[in-house]
Simulated scan of single mutants.
Amino acid sequence: MSKRLLILTPNPDHPSHHGRWPYVLDAYREALAGLDAEIFDQPWSQPISEDYDLILPLVAWGYHNAPNSFVGAMTAMGAAHRRVFNPPEIVSWNVDKAYLHDLAEAGIRIVPTLFVDQVTDAEIARAREDFGQKALVLKPRISAGAKNTLIWDGEALDGFTASDAKAVPPVGPAMIQPYMPAIASEGEWSLIFFVGEFSHAVLKTPKAGDFRSQPDYDANLRAQTPPDEALRLAQACIDYIGRDRLLYARVDMVRADDDGFCLMELELIEPDLYLTYDLEASMRFKDAVEQALHVGCGCHG
């Protein structure tokens, strides 16, 4: 008897539902072709009324637009003992980038970060003193796709102007970090794991004059063999969560001035897994999902 697999998609009440997610969903369906399972999809914001052998939040775009509702939906799935991979408690923890503090406390090297309740001129001055440089990155603690993320080397924030509505200072809980020059010169490394094992890596270099490494901003993406130290950092992140508790993960990092690496983000909700950049990535993804469907692993709701 075929298994039943549910992939969560964006909330129809938010802008992400009008984006390119259907193409992403189609790509996952294509990667999973031949799997002995029926594949369904529905918005994460709607109650789940049927039984499924496995639920993937892989296309739950826009969760950052209603984070409390999203965490509530994950909590409800966990309470109902639904098999959600990655597990609801891990997904909920990953919503707020304050999780970086937990990783740093565990000895994992992150980009130096000042967590603030609100970005103010006083907090910017404090960050500049702490980090010893003027150029800072301002970003919300809950966000996606570089929304409200920008480099700031100006003076008073009330003099800020921008032509891009996405590139305005964050409002509410935020992070202030030193700008890492390697983002522009080398790029951001993304290391992808399936069931706790390294699959492939992609190096994402922003276009000239930009710092955003997403394909949406015309960054240059290509598959690369990661440096050993980058792989060790990524593996430490996976080990912190527990290799048997993760179906998929993307570890984003940047090279520091000392040639080491700093974690930028640990993406465990709906990351782009860059399946098309490695010839065998789709097969490894399919094998991971098949294992979760038929064998199971430590990740459960």
Rank of each mutant, 00 (worst) to 15 (best):
R109D: 15
R109S: 15
I110T: 13
I110W: 07
V111I: 13
V111N: 03
P112T: 08
P112W: 10
P112N: 06
T113N: 07
T113I: 07
L114F: 09
L114T: 09
L114A: 10
F115N: 06
F115G: 05
F115Q: 15
V116E: 01
D117W: 05
D117M: 11
Q118H: 12
V119I: 09
V119L: 05
T120S: 13
T120P: 02
T120W: 06
D121M: 04
D121W: 04
A122L: 13
A122G: 06
A122V: 15
E123T: 14
E123K: 11
E123F: 08
A125F: 04
A125P: 01
A125L: 09
A125K: 14
R126P: 01
A127N: 05
R128K: 10
R128Q: 14
D130A: 15
D130T: 13
D130S: 14
G132D: 11
Q133E: 14
Q133P: 05
Q133N: 07
K134W: 10
A135H: 09
A135Q: 09
L136M: 15
L136E: 00
V137H: 00
L138K: 04
L138A: 02
K139Y: 06
K139E: 05
P140C: 04
R141T: 00
R141G: 01
I142G: 00
I142A: 02
I142S: 00
S143P: 06
S143A: 12
A144C: 02
G145F: 07
A146E: 07
A146H: 08
K147I: 14
K147C: 08
N148Q: 13
N148T: 08
L150R: 07
L150V: 06
I151P: 03
I151A: 04
I151W: 02
W152I: 07
D153P: 06
D153T: 10
G154H: 03
